[in-house]
Design a protein around this nucleic acid. Structure first.
Lengths: 304, 304
DNA sequence: ATTTTTGATTGGATTTTTCAATGACGTCTC
DNA sequence: GAGACGTCATTGAAAAATCCAATCAAAAAT
């Protein structure tokens, strides 16, 4: 039984004439005749009463022709789905974003994507790099936005932008008078940091290697967010480091905290997109990259 | 796109492994690999993400695989319908019966058929022979029960039983003392007959050719039934001729009418089944014939 | 570095499909 | 009722497709 066979019997039931039905199916009359006969043999039931005058559908044949029409209708839906899905900008896109990017990027990114790819529903997940990696490999998400370095079997990355780090101080802090701050000096102060698992923590420590051994590390905040740390800085509990996208919007809007640049060379992180090498919707990746760049994150510089 | 292709992608989506999916479909891995690829080309969308580690279904692929499962489910229903319909004693049987047989045969025939072919719904129509012929040729009914002679293109008949005619008299009629009545004598009395179109009318007139020219024919009752005529006989309006199946049950149950046999050779009619030569459910015909014979019509004799 | 496992590719045997020609049968016309 | 016509069935050869064993290429696992 093939879909062609079903088309044949449906046409034959409509036309009640082998010749016309064959014409309708763009095949010769013997082709249709043989196919119908074979199908009847396979099914073990007579579907049509043949006579020179007229072809009649048997009662069982009527039931089967009706069912065949249903099958063909469902089958043609497959083509429709494929047609609708040809546009790579349709169909859901599942994005994973690390915790230290999501809150600052997504509010502007999501409306941008929704506008540029209106037929592409977004499913967004924030998580640690490690979790996003799993999800990516498992196929739970299609693309991740995370910080380099990132190396993984079967995953390719594309850098999008570099983002310098800033120092966040209580407004009353002595350093508030300085224009720039040297990374090394961070060890002098209580440094508030995210817990292990957040790649941003490692990147900050990399920027100030000495901090890794200073007692200020007692200030690590497990299961917290940059926003929490910001509030803690505001209450004078210590200083912290933020990416520019998180820090710069605070300038002039917050009375309790001050934002200062690092001295050159500024420590920074490189943010990238990551997806499976096998992922077919590469157009979506391009679109996403451009949308991220157009999101207007402060302080960042495009990576070409 | 064929049903086989759909089976392939469904299996592949389940197994997420070309080799195992191929095994499941009882084909080689290249066969499945090529078929999936061709289907993807035809549809113009990538259904699977291939990698050495694992095969993943794309989001559009998931939709299409789901739809393919639906198609296959509907298609397998066709086999089910065919299987259920293989029994010739299932599926509706549409029977046509002439007016002068129906009321006497059907009350016992229908329960008998319902018992012997419980999965065969009956659709029954009473009509004139001419109308039944049309319905038969058009395919509106499957089989007709009617009186011979009957000759029609594409229709075959099989005699079932012979049925002698009886004379029905008012109980007070002078002939009531006779044991048998000669057909010729019918012209002496007012003879109540059905209108033109009822084949039984013709058959009676054939039994008594002289009646055709007697004035008693003014007693023709258009659009009436044998039952009406019976009541008219009871009120003394005339005599009539009935088939034994209609007349014999009256013996001993009716005070106002008497039933008398004809002298030998008794006029009679031959009742037969008629169906299209192309009608495939010949078993049903046999069953119907036997059921008619087992209906216990009085006075009839089986035709072998 | 090597082996194993994966899906893709290839070439040729096999099967299936297809159709023009023809046949068998019934219908319709004159 | 003879013949023309139209129907569906059958046939045989050509074309197309399907299918698989063998092999390749790439990645993963060891």
């Amino acid at each position: 039984m093939t879909l062609t066979d079903l088309r044949y019997i449906v046409a034959l039931a409509q036309e009640r004439h082998f010749g016309r039905a064959a014409e309708k199916c763009h095949v010769s009359q013997p082709t249709l005749s043989v196919a119908v006969k074979k199908l009847e043999e396979q099914l073990g039931v007579m579907l049509f009463e043949r006579s020179a005058a007229d072809v009649k559908v048997t009662s069982i044949g009527r039931q089967i022709v009706d069912q065949a029409e249903r099958v063909l209708r469902e089958a043609s839906q497959i083509r429709d789905i494929a047609e609708a899905g040809k546009d790579p900008l349709s169909g859901p896109l599942r994005i994973g974003v690390i915790y230290t990017i999501g809150p600052y990027l997504l509010p502007s990114l999501i409306p941008l994507l929704a506008e540029r790819a209106p037929r592409m529903p977004l499913v967004i997940q924030e998580n640690y790099t490690a979790r996003l990696t799993e999800a990516l490999k498992r196929g739970d998400i299609d693309v991740a936005i995370l910080a380099l370095p990132f190396q993984e079997q079967g995953i390719v990355t594309q850098p999008v932008y570099d983002e310098p780090f800033r120092v966040l101080l209580p407004a009353s802090h002595p350093w508030a008078d300085a224009k720039e701050i040297t990374a090394d000096r961070l060890q002098e102060e209580p440094l508030l940091l995210l817990g292990a698992g957040n790649c941003f923590r490692e990147q900050v420590l990399e920027a100030c290697p000495r901090c890794a051994h200073s007692s200020s590390l007692q200030k690590t905040l497990e299961g917290s967010s940059l926003e929490t740390i910001r509030h803690m800085v505001a209450t004078g509990l210590g200083v912290t480091v933020l990416p520019s996208s998180a820090a710069d919007p605070l300038i002039g809007t917050q009375k309790l905290v001050a934002v200062r640049n690092f001295s050159k060379p500024e420590p920074s992180r490189r943010v990238a997109l990551a997806w499976r090498v096998t992922y077919p919707r590469t157009k979506v990746i391009d679109l996403l990259r451009q949308a991220v760049l157009d999101s207007g994150l402060p302080g960042v510089s495009v990576v070409r």
